[in-house]
């Protein structure tokens, strides 16, 4: 393995690590309005945060199990789709995480 590919792998690992923590916050923020998986992915991608389906759906399930989201199956365009939205606990959590994110962001801006 060459040094440049090693560096690239390292960068990729660190980038994924950095992203992982932000995804929950991004998903919660987008679910202030009701969406189903595919439109949620598109909304995040439009904001520059690409997320693949095998990452998003398990994350949605986890957040729902934690009581931060509620979901409902409903027919739209002749197809059954699962719609997600923030639960009251999710709204509270989004507020707290948002504040925390602002703090971290401010600190890092100062440091960097």
């Amino acid at each position: 393995m060459s040094q440049s590919s090693g560096n690239h792998d390292l960068f990729e690992n660190l980038r994924l690590e950095l992203r992982r923590g932000c995804l929950s916050l991004a998903v919660l923020s987008q679910l202030r309005t009701e969406r189903y998986g595919y439109t949620l992915r598109k909304a995040l991608a439009e904001q520059g945060l690409e997320i693949d389906e095998s990452t998003l759906y398990p994350l949605l399930r986890r957040l729902e199990t934690q009581g931060l989201l509620t979901s409902v199956w409903r027919e739209e365009d002749k197809r059954n789709k699962r719609f997600y939205r923030l639960s009251p606990e999710g709204k509270q959590m989004l507020k707290q995480l948002g504040t925390e994110w602002q703090k971290i962001n401010a600190s890092l801006n100062g440091i960097l």
Partner: peptide
């Protein structure tokens, strides 16, 4: 969770 997950994944892939 099989049915639920497959239905959701199927919907996403079909939309794509």
């Amino acid at each position: 969770q099989r049915g639920d997950i497959v239905a959701e994944l199927s919907e996403d892939l079909r939309s794509q």
